[in-house]
């Protein structure tokens, strides 16, 4: 398998305060690579720097230092101008955590979906666009006529998250960064959403990077897990390696603190 994303010594340092400058290291010289077609999870608690890392890969936050290379191109140095950026986002896109704030409340679902055509180089006529949007919505189990003309607040959180994934089915990127895509969704709907990501890989061959605090979720869905703590990746391995044989003390503590369904701490 070939490497499609390579991250080297990536760091993000925030400076706060005006008189007395204090530095906050959100991401501390992180290096890793992602192979084509794999599902990889970046697991960490709040403040671990996982979301900042994701945003830098999505080219939404500029890193303080380090290199992110996608298909051999340094995304912060080699991409210039609108068409390069559109090429990048056509190939690398994201799904966010909050299905409520990820939609402009004044737009209809159709507007939300159609906007992604900005990324397309090919000129499509109105009918083709409509057909592609409908196909994408059907892929995630939505009925196009029921959602296309709705506004986001008329849909449930689960449906909105499906729309967000339908957008990915429409764009068909090579790499998807999914930042806590199920954490605000009810338990009984969560598996359905996760299945959609598996489907994405099966049908389009998408490489998926999950950003999550939930080790349980990472355990099921990933080929490989990276554990992030205080801005650093402290451990990396297959799900079984991480869960059954954690090397780092933090990972061990984290696994101990996860409540299990079939055992109790107090009995």
């Amino acid at each position: 398998m070939s490497t499609i994303l390579e991250v080297k010594n990536l760091a993000k340092i925030y400076e706060i305060g005006y008189i007395r400058k204090r530095q906050i290291v959100a991401v501390d010289k992180v290096s890793f690579s992602v192979k084509k077609g794999e599902i990889i999870s970046l697991v960490g608690e709040s403040g671990s720097g996982k979301t900042t890392t994701a945003r830098m890969i999505l080219r939404l936050i500029k890193p303080t230092s380090g290199v992110i290379k996608f298909m051999g191109r340094d995304i912060w140095r080699d991409l210039r101008g609108g068409s390069d950026l559109r090429w990048y986002w056509r190939n690398v896109n994201g799904v966010f955590q909050d299905p409520f704030s990820s939609f402009n409340p004044t737009h209809r679902i159709r507007d939300f979906m159609y906007r992604a055509f900005n990324l397309f180089n090919e000129k499509l006529d109105r009918d083709t666009k409509e057909r592609l949007v409908r196909e994408a919505l059907q892929m995630v189990g939505l009925i196009p006529d029921e959602v296309l003309n709705r506004r986001p607040f008329e849909l449930s959180g689960g449906m909105r998250q499906r729309v967000m994934i339908a957008r990915i089915f429409l764009i068909r990127p090579m790499l998807v960064i999914a930042d806590e895509p199920t954490s605000m969704i009810d338990a009984t709907l969560r598996l359905g959403i996760l299945r959609l990501f598996s489907k994405l890989r099966e049908e389009i061959g998408t490489t998926i990077m999950f950003i999550t605090h939930d080790m349980g979720l990472a355990y099921y869905i990933s080929d490989r897990i990276m554990v992030m703590y205080r801005g650093k990746i402290i451990e990396e391995g297959t799900p079984d390696e991480i869960v059954n044989n954690p090397k780092h003390e933090y990972t061990r503590n984290l696994l101990d603190s996860i409540p299990k369904l079939y055992t109790s701490w107090f009995k």
Binding site: A187, T188, L189, R190, L191, D214, M215, G216, L217, Y219, Y220, P239, V243, L255, I258, P259, K260, L261, Y262, T263
Partner: peptide
């Protein structure tokens, strides 16, 4: 119950 994902 089946929707619970814990590392077990």
């Amino acid at each position: 119950m089946f929707s619970i994902l814990t590392p077990e």
